[in-house]
Design a binder for these strands. Structure first.
Ligand SMILES: [Mn+2]
Ligand SMILES: [Mn+2]
Ligand SMILES: [Zn+2]
Ligand SMILES: [Zn+2]
Lengths: 137, 137
DNA sequence: CTAGGATTTGGACTCTGTCTAACTATCGGA
DNA sequence: TCCGATAGTTAGACAGAGTCCAAATCCTAG
């Protein structure tokens, strides 16, 4: 269990070939220190918690850069916004539709069997398994 | 293999407790006759192919009504738009990220094992398995 | 210190989807 | 037939997520 701080955020960014600027460090820190799934909006709110520091354009630029560089992944479960996930290892998601809460499901003991062969000329980018739940009536 | 026409669309709507209006029949026919995953935009374009017949508001109202009544389901794979699926039976999806093409994977021979117990007080709404692929470089 | 590339920024813009208030279609009863 | 009630449709305003752009700022090598 790593303790995340601004210094190892800079290292992490460099390790992913990302020039560690102040804004990028803050955004990475927001995601990695919490280890939660955050929307762009939430990232923006966290980073600008005390004083406004980072513009909307930079938040989106940065999240998309992190995606490209494989530092984070996106989770598409809600038609109205994307969630960004600091955990890029294989795992799945539980989505509570009432509240919008999104939590991880460990991939360790899940087996998905019987997937058909892929069509010619394509390769797998990822396999997303989403368990949608709602509060019992 | 059923041949879909406007008449059995009206029956299908009534069977799902939906009053079959002209617009609703056309929208249902667009989805069921093609058996494809369509976005609201695409439904609108199909229904208004010859002359404008149906407004944007009605397309959205109707698709949401169909969802509520369980006539269709939505597939959330693309952060920018929802796809509507006339196939409500259990099945999974293959999403080609370059082209946006979305195709079905039969659920028959797929087994998903080792899912953890659900948290207290929730029940499963659905399990979505999405295989994301891209064209080989 | 300075020039140039990289980064950030506000704000305009696009797109998907929702909302509203007016309009229309349908139907049963007088 | 006419009327009123109800359900459905509509144009267009609106909201929210995300992108784009040109100008401003930051950083670093020289
Ligand atoms: Mn990585
Ligand atoms: Mn059904
Ligand atoms: Zn996750
Ligand atoms: Zn499908």
């Amino acid at each position: 269990m790593i303790q995340y701080n601004r210094d190892n955020m800079a290292e992490l960014l460099r390790a992913h070939d990302i020039n560690p600027t102040h804004q990028r460090i803050e955004i990475a820190y927001a995601l990695f220190s919490r280890q939660e799934h955050l929307s762009a909006d939430q990232v923006m709110a966290i980073v600008n918690g005390r004083h406004a520091e980072t513009s909307k354009a930079t938040v989106y630029n940065t999240l998309n850069l992190f995606l490209e560089k494989g530092l984070i992944r996106e989770v598409i479960v809600d038609p109205s916004k994307v969630f960004y996930d600091p955990n890029t290892g294989p795992h799945h998601h539980l989505y509570e539709v009432d509240s919008g809460r999104l939590t991880d499901i460990k991939a360790d003991d899940i087996r998905i069997e019987g997937l058909p062969d892929l069509p010619q000329g394509v390769e797998t980018v990822g396999i997303d398994l989403i368990v949608r739940v709602k509060r019992t009536a």
